[in-house]
């Protein structure tokens, strides 16, 4: 049953829109450091956005500053996940949803390819066995 069936209308919903807190700009600086480290050592890193005091306006500001890149990956695993490259190659905006579509976590990953996108050798092995099976049936 949805709320529509009950004669309730929420006057003061939890605040969705709020202004800029000034917490977003330092994140760009941290990202720059992480990208520098990726270039120097190849080490991947990430910023967990759900754990930071950011308002929706802050997130919009960040997204706008980072822009959109060439690659968008959509993953269907227990709900949708999107991994979008930003205008800075190597910086990925990652959003995980649950099966009802609610955001469960949101992060910015700095990596050549996000870990989630790579296929695991064990899984590749299973795929290879499947291929063999298909070939033997031909």
């Amino acid at each position: 049953m949805s709320l529509d069936a009950i004669p309730i209308h929420v006057i003061n919903a939890p605040p969705i829109e709020a202004g800029l807190t000034g917490n977003a700009p330092p994140l760009l600086r941290e990202l720059a450091e992480q990208v520098k480290r990726l270039l120097a050592t190849g080490e991947a890193s990430a910023i967990d956005l759900s754990a930071l005091p950011l308002t929706p306006a802050d997130l919009d500001w960040l997204r706008e500053k980072l822009g959109a890149g060439e690659i968008s990956v959509t993953l269907q695993a227990n709900g949708e996940s999107t991994l979008n490259e930003t205008a800075c190659p190597g910086v990925w905006w990652v959003t995980h949803h649950n099966e009802r579509g609610a955001v469960t976590s949101q992060l910015i990953e700095v990596a050549l390819v996000p870990e989630l996108v790579k296929a695991h050798p064990q899984d590749v092995q299973i795929g290879y066995e499947y291929l063999e099976l298909v070939l033997s049936d031909l």
């Binding site: 990430a46 967990d48 227990n78 995980h96 469960t104 992060l107």
Partner: peptide, 19 residues
Amino acid sequence: RRTFLKYCTTLASMMALPP
């Protein structure tokens, strides 16, 4: 494996562990 990795990412985030 990816579902599991995704789950662990969310769990780590909830537990305030680094990403």
